[in-house]
Structure formats: structure tokens, C-alpha cells
Design a protein around this nucleic acid. Structure first.
Lengths: 351, 351
DNA sequence: TTGTAAGCGTTATCAC
DNA sequence: GTGATAACGCTTACAA
């Protein structure tokens, strides 16, 4: 049976009171008499009344919906992140409108349009890899829809951002590798377009320079993150007269590809050559040879933080707080996580 | 600058016409004169007017939002599925409201509440593993919110469902294993609560029975899908006087755990023992020893199909088509996907 | 303590 | 051809 959702009007009619009385009774307005209040609330419960939030939001010009746009939810980093976003959102009664860009700027625009149409209260975006024109994002500012970027953040300052500091993390990683006796540290970095690529490189160079050593750029290769491109980078590194003793890869997915390469070329991993990486994703723990160290980027925390900042912005806006020109830049420090098995092995060798 | 979104009213005022004229002009109503129409449309474009869908939906009692509730987006199966859902939704101008149950019935209820509050036009749900009380879902029917379940579907008939037929798939798998010379086929099945567990078992038994062989239930163990439980199942199977030559695991995640176990116990995989699985997830291709065969369950296609069915239901409802008591049950056949490397090896042995 | 009425942005139904 | 108005469900001044 089509059981139409009851409205405030319906209740009012049945009880022979006005809609405003019902409205106030339901929201426990102090001016409503106890008798009327209980009568209304009882009937409401009986009819399973639920306020039509759409009508409320429409009136309040608020949807309690946050749009989230990610490149690929398939990547564990992002599925972790959205869980943090979701949990924080739920704690503040927001719901998540979800869309993927699939690293395609056109798709990103389309999703953005859809979310604008839905009048989201705000957006959390991790940009597509190839987005280098930011006009579609500028319109958001124009219409006063707050956006918090995370992880893949835009290069300009005038934006709210949450991201992981990979510069510091990379320095730490290089330090740790030196402390473990590695001298020739190879690096398969990501594509030039990504900010993250430059951060990592800066950290790598700084880490080595700090040790009063000279940076050998032949040890640094790049991949566009495709398997083929990664294989090529590996080939080049291994073809060097003095190949690296350890290779840091751009992220855990590159690491996985590199492991495939190593297996196919019968390299003895953790004997002939060692690998370190970024991201510290759970999947790597299933593989035969996880990275000896991986920089944890805390995706869940990043997502949570982004959501919290967004809610703060929205609330500031609602209270007409004067926050023009104030941008949140939240930096989370990437932490070098060391593979336990590797650590144990090393220790037993030392003793 | 706070650039408020322009409304139809705003345009009307500026052009000294009525709102209804503007409304009609924008929707190309035939009764509007060409001059007025162009004037309106030009100003609309100039002001970047975008209809407030919230107001329209509010009036039409429609949101163009579909709620999607999944157990864990982290699982590749579900992140594939939601991509199918999203793509199909986009093609019909729907947007996705997203929530995870984290296999927790209470959380599932909460998410469901939030989506009901948002007045979604429909829902796509893959149930939490532990959901065995369906009252919270019954209220949806009562309020006439259509639901399509997929993959983890409820056990009753009166529901729209999309799922993969694992009964047939399992029979096929058993057949293929026999054809490859395997006689003792072990099975690590999932928890009893899951429908999928029973389907797989039925297929396993049928597959063996069809070969006029007797089913040896000592070869069938169960796991609650935790790593510990899977390890125990492995122990039991390997402790048998006649241990299995090949083991089918409940899904690729169980497979990954089993591989860890095998590695820790120095089993020679694809020599001493072989493994087959369900799901055919991309991650397994990164591992040293992917399953020799895995039943593809087409998560993307399942998601797409679920969305398409849901839209059909919504449209039927809108046209007041009399579809009471009619339920869609879409079955996709699981297909045995054979690992290429294994196939090549086998062939070279044969020759 | 309760009721009346305006308003949120849009569309549809009347009029003119 | 165009305009006025009601309606969608709800909140909230303002009246009573």
C-alpha cells in the first residue's frame, strides 16, 4: 500500500490545531502547552512522522549534503580517506554525495556540475592527476560554495587544503636508509605534473645533501604511474654501472609493479636489492615482499580532518563570521613506517 | 564577494516581466514570444543562472538522488561496483549518496535513516554480513522507497535483486579442476550466515556428484573470513591423511590470507598444492601466486544493472504503472577465469 | 498559549 | 503571449 509520508499539515488537521503549533510542539518550543505538545508528539510518533528535510533545507537554504570528488575509489588510499570523511560527516549529521573523476578533468567537471546542481553545502576534492586548469573550481568560490582540497591539492595558496608533508617524510626516509647502511639510494618518482612529485624530490635531495653527499641524478627516474613506464624506469636504474642498492618508489602501486618486474627478472629481493615506498597500504602486507619501509600518509585522518575543517567553514559562514581571505592549510607529517620482518632480520644480522 | 546564485525572480525583476514568463521562456514553452524568450535566455546566461534543483525537486517530490549502502568500500569488489553504479546513475542524471555499513547492522540502520531523511528517490544496498533482521528495510517498502539489493541480497523473495550465480560458477570450477587432473578438491567456504556460502557449497557438491564421485566433507572447512579463522581451516585441511591437491577459497581476500599461511609454512605453491578462488580481483594479479582460476563476479556490471533496474522502477512508479508484487531478480553468471601463466605452464607440461 | 501569514524557488493552472 | 496565483512542507515573526 502506498503509505504517503505524513506531513505537519496532516497532523494539524487531525488535531484541529494550526501547522505552526504542530511545528513548535515537535521542536519543543517552550511556548507550547504541555497538553498540546504531548498530543502532537504522540500522534506524530503514531503516524511515524518524519520531517521532510528537503523542505526544511529548502527553506534554510541548506542541504546537509557534502560533495566528495575523488580520482579513483579503487585506490586504497582514497577508500580509506572516504571512510574518514564519512565518519566525520555522520558525527555532524551531514551526508556524502559521491563522485569519481577517474583522473579525467572532463569527468571532474561533470561531477562538479552535478554537485552544484544538488546545492551541496560544501565540497571535499582530491584533484584529478591531469587537472591543470582550475576555472571550473573558481566558479565554486564565486557562488560561495566552500571547498576543502585534500591530498591532491591545487598549487595556489587561496584554497583550504589538507595534505601530507612528504618533504619531511622523504628526508626521514633517506636518513633511515643511510642509518641502515644503504649508500646508493635509487628513486622512481612520479609525473612532473604532480605537486607530490616535487615534494618528494626536494626531500630526497635535501636528505642526501644533509649527509654532505652529492646527489647523483642518474639514480632518479620517473614513471607516469603506468606499469610500462615503471618497468622502463627500473630497466634504466638497473642498467647503471653502479645500480642502486635500494629503490624508493613513488607509491605502493608503483611498488607492486616493481615487484612484478623484479620477479620476472629473477632479482633476489631483500638480498640483491631492496625497496621502500610511500603510502603504507594494507595490500602490501599481503605480498611476498612488502617495502622495507613505507611512508604512512594517514588517508583516514586526512579525510576526517578535511571534513572537520569544511564543517568549521560552513558554520563560520552561517554565523556570518568575517573570515574572508583566511585559508586553512593543514599539514600532516608523513611517518616512516618500518617493516617489522625486515627490522628483525637486520637485528639478527647485527648481533 | 558573496555572489548569490541568481533566481528566476531576479531575472524577472530585471526584465520587468513575471516569474512565470521567465520560467516558461527558460523551458522553451511555445507560448512565449521569440523576443522575450531570447531576452530571458540571454540574461540567464549572463548571470550564470542555474535552476535551483532543490526547489524543483521539492515541488516535484523528487530528489534525483540515489542512496548506496555498501559494507566496505575498501573491498575492491565494492569499489568496482560503485563505479558501475555511478556511471549508470550519471547517464540518467542521478547522483549518488554514499554510505558504508562496515558490516555493522547498527551502522547500516543509521545510514539508512540518514538517507531516508534526505528523501532519496531509491536505494541500492549490499547488506551487512551480519544483518539477519530486516525490519529496518521493511519501513522502506512502507514508505514506498524502492530498493534494489545486489550481491549481498536478503533471503526473501519479495525484493529486487541483482547477484551473481555462484552455484553454476562453482560447478564449472569443479569441472575445470577435474579436467586439469585434480581429484581431491578442498574448499574453504565462508560463514553459514551468508547466502553465498550455501550457493557455493551446493555447487561444489553438485559438481562432484555429477562426476559420479562421493563428496568427502572432511575436505570442506569454513572461515568467518578473519585471517585467524582461515589459518585454522588451512591447518585442518593440511592435517588430513589425504590432504587436498587444490583448495578453493571463499574469495580473493581469503586467498591472500591462505597465501600468507602457505608462505609461512614453506609450502611450494603450484607444486605441492594449488589454489583457486572467487572474485578475480585485480589485486591478486600483483601477488606472487595468483589463484590458478578465479570466478569472475562482474561487480561493475552488477552495480550498473542494479542502477538501471532501480531507475526503471522509479519511472514505472512515476507513471503509476501497476507493478505491485513484481520483483526483478537479475542473475549474472559467474565465469571461471583461468590464470594465463598457469595455463601456459600446464600446456608446456602436456606437450 | 496558540493562530495567521509570509517566504524559500519553481511550476502549473487559471485568467486576461 | 503574458501575468497573477496557488501549491509543495516547513519555520518564524507577528498577532491575538
Amino acid at each position: 500500500m502506498e503509505n504517503k509520508l505524513p506531513t505537519i499539515k496532516e497532523i494539524a488537521k487531525r488535531l484541529n490545531v494550526s501547522v505552526s503549533t504542530v511545528s513548535r510542539a515537535l521542536s519543543n518550543h517552550p511556548s507550547i502547552g504541555l497538553r498540546t505538545r504531548t498530543r502532537v508528539q504522540e500522534l506524530a510518533k503514531e503516524l511515524n512522522y518524519e520531517p521532510n528535510t528537503k523542505a526544511i533545507f529548502f527553506k534554510q537554504q541548506k542541504t546537509f549534503i557534502i560533495g566528495v570528488i575523488l580520482p579513483y575509489i579503487k585506490e586504497e588510499f582514497f577508500s580509506e580517506a572516504i571512510s574518514g570523511i564519512e565518519t566525520a560527516a555522520m558525527a555532524h549529521d551531514y551526508t556524502i554525495l559521491f563522485g569519481q573523476s577517474f583522473d579525467d578533468t572532463e569527468r571532474e567537471k561533470k561531477v562538479l556540475e552535478a554537485m552544484k546542481k544538488q546545492r551541496v553545502d560544501g565540497l571535499i576534492i582530491s584533484l584529478s592527476k591531469y587537472t591543470n586548469n582550475f576555472d571550473h573550481l573558481a566558479t565554486l568560490e564565486k557562488y560561495d560554495i566552500p571547498v576543502v582540497y585534500f591530498d591532491r591539492v591545487p598549487p595556489f595558496e587561496n584554497a583550504h587544503k589538507v595534505y601530507c608533508n612528504l618533504y619531511k617524510g622523504t628526508i626521514e626516509m633517506v636518513n633511515w636508509l643511510f642509518s641502515r647502511g644503504f649508500k646508493r639510494i635509487g628513486f622512481i618518482n612520479g609525473p612532473d605534473k604532480l605537486l607530490a612529485t616535487h615534494e618528494r624530490l626536494k626531500g630526497y635531495i635535501e636528505g642526501i645533501t644533509k649527509k654532505k653527499l652529492k646527489v647523483d641524478m642518474r639514480l632518479v627516474e620517473q614513471t607516469d604511474l603506468s606499469r610500462e613506464s615503471t618497468y622502463k624506469a627500473m630497466e634504466k636504474l638497473l642498467a647503471l654501472k653502479q645500480p642502486p642498492e635500494v629503490i624508493i618508489t613513488f607509491n605502493d602501486y608503483v611498488h607492486l609493479d616493481v615487484m612484478q618486474y623484479a620477479r620476472q627478472h629473477n632479482l633476489k629481493i631483500n638480498e640483491d636489492i631492496f625497496f621502500a615506498s610511500y603510502a603504507n597500504l594494507p595490500i602490501t602486507s599481503y605480498t611476498a615482499f612488502p617495502p622495507i619501509a613505507s611512508i604512512e600518509q594517514y588517508p583516514y585522518k586526512q579525510g576526517e580532518k578535511a571534513m572537520e575543517i569544511l564543517i568549521r567553514i560552513i558554520n563560520d559562514k552561517l554565523q556570518h563570521a568575517n573570515v574572508a581571505g583566511k585559508y586553512y592549510h593543514e599539514e600532516i607529517d608523513g611517518l616512516v613506517m618500518i617493516n617489522k620482518d625486515f627490522e628483525l632480520n637486520q637485528d639478527s644480522i647485527k648481533n
